[in-house]
Amino acid sequence: MLSRRIIPCLDVRDGRVVKGVRFRDHVDMGDIVELALRYRDAGADELVFYDIGASPQGRSVDVRWVERVARTLDIPFCVAGGIRDVATARDVLLAGADKISVNTPALERPALIAELAEAFGVQCVVVGVDSLRDADGEWRVRSHTGDPDRMRAPGLRTLEWVRQAQARGAGEIVLNCMDSDGVRRGYDIAQLQAVRAVCEVPLVASGGAGTIADFVAAFRVADVDGALAASVFHAGTVEIPALKQVLAAEGIEVRT
């Protein structure tokens, strides 16, 4: 049986892992490879590296660190941020990344998803979706979320975008629920359930994990395939071995 995946997300800037407080004041957390191996040893099933400098600064990912990670790491990893064309995606994949994740560039030009799927196969193509509940109760996507001053609301309903992204060739959807992001009050289960209902490809929950119980709920109630988190892992609030022990005891299939 397929295991549910635990996916730590590491923010990368200038080849280092950083931690931001409310998108600003980034603190250096250490060397990418060192931290990647630490999470691998703890039992992470996959890692996401989010190049937080690339997207807002309009430059592409520096593939040198991607290659450094690929040489050392023996679990899969995905690179997000700053990928807006097939050529850049190719550089990142050839440097050794297993998947690439696109968000704002896909919203700006949805044909990008199909181009990537055609070039590399759907299994390499992750579409990241940043979503917020608007005053009318509808979930709608946000773009340019890497920089709070540039964030935009294109008005597109989240469920519609998830359907469209799959039709165009997304092999996986990462749903980042921004209402809960960084506040550690749990994943947005209602929204994840709604997206799950329209999502045939793997769905990864992101935003809001605070306790082990939050992971249990995301897997059990929202039936997601993976759960992504950053701060609880970085701060050591949730340790992956203990998390997996609880998940297994709850009857949720995990890799131990």
Binding site: M1, L2, S3, R4, R5, D45, E46, V122, Q123, G171, E172, E200, V201, P202, L203, D223, D225, G226, R255
Partner: peptide
């Protein structure tokens, strides 16, 4: 073939 509750592509760790 996708089935209810079964995602394709098959992506992740399996036994």
């Amino acid at each position: 073939a996708p089935q209810p509750g079964l995602r394709v592509p098959h992506m992740g760790w399996n036994r």
